[in-house]
């Protein structure tokens, strides 16, 4: 198997994205805006107190900039398969002598790379000069943060992948995708840091796939987890990736037999 076709797809999406300059400027503004709104809300909540349950405002700030930044990077195209089934272009996709899943990953990676350079980094720099961001606990933790963030992306991607596969049967899965995204936004800690969730809920959330997407990398970055805990959490992330991927893959195999091509 050659990687060349997949690199070509990743490159294509990267170039496509760069072509729309206005859209990119607006993208940076909207990511920053979102961050500052949440930041203001929490600043007001903190008022004069230096910490709530041992969580300081700079930690909250860092949580938001990292989880929203990661959120801006990880935006799997949830409509990749559904839109192709909807308009019938899935026919031409299936004519290519390459793995459709591989191509899906390639486009998402190309997209993520673009977002890293043109969403995350600009916003991080703006935040550094305005509100300040905590430095990583240590270089080792920074490396583990990156590892865990990549695994988090894997979790997010496999969830999107599995949900998309239902389009073979349902064709229109807009509502399903919306529910999925609400769950991820609320339960992953990107809106409400999971520190502030009720204890019982956190215990459950710790073993759900969602929390591992953003919250685990953030905790690692801040040095809140011991090495053993990190290994456990990364293990959980990996386990979810495998489980959800296998589930999605069953749907993928069955779905191809069900495939209908809309339009002449």
């Amino acid at each position: 198997m050659s990687l060349r076709p997949y690199l070509a797809y990743a490159k294509k999406i990267f170039l496509n994205r760069s072509a729309y300059r206005f859209d990119n400027v607006m993208g940076i503004i909207s990511t920053c805006l979102q961050f500052f709104i949440f930041w203001e809300i929490y600043k007001a909540l903190y008022g004069t107190s230096t910490d709530i349950d041992g969580i300081t405002m700079p930690m909250v700030t860092t949580n938001f900039i990292l989880s929203m930044g990661l959120g801006a990077i990880f935006s799997p195209d949830d409509y990749f398969l559904p839109s192709k089934i909807w308009d019938g272009s899935i026919a031409t996709e299936f004519l290519r002598p390459i793995s459709f899943k591989g191509r899906m990953i390639a486009e998402n990676v190309g997209n993520a790379l673009f977002n890293l350079l043109f969403r995350f980094l600009p916003c991080l720099i703006i935040a550094l000069f305005t509100v300040g961001v905590n430095a990583p606990a240590s270089p080792a933790m920074l490396a583990l943060f990156v590892l865990s963030a990549v695994l988090g992306f894997g979790v997010l991607w496999t969830i999107s992948f599995a949900v998309q596969m239902t389009a073979f049967w349902l064709i229109n899965i807009w509502s399903l995708i919306t529910i999925k995204n609400v769950l991820i936004n609320v339960l992953s800690g990107s809106m409400i840091p999971l520190w502030f969730m009720p204890r019982e809920l956190t215990a459950i959330l710790n073993f759900m796939p969602f929390s591992s997407v953003y919250f685990t990398p953030v905790q690692i970055y801040l040095g809140q987890l011991s090495f053993e805990e990190i290994m456990l959490k990364c293990g959980i992330q990996l386990a979810w990736i495998i489980v959800i991927y296998l589930l999605g893959d069953i749907l993928w195999r069955k779905g191809q037999k069900k495939l209908i091509v809309q339009g002449g």
């Binding site: 019938g88 272009s89 026919a91 031409t92 299936f94 004519l95 002598p97 793995s99 339009g263 002449g264």
Partner: peptide, 17 residues
Amino acid sequence: RKAYVGKIGVVFGQKSQ
């Protein structure tokens, strides 16, 4: 499919590739 489609060409007049 994957091994096979590399050997064929298909033109769908109604769908651009």
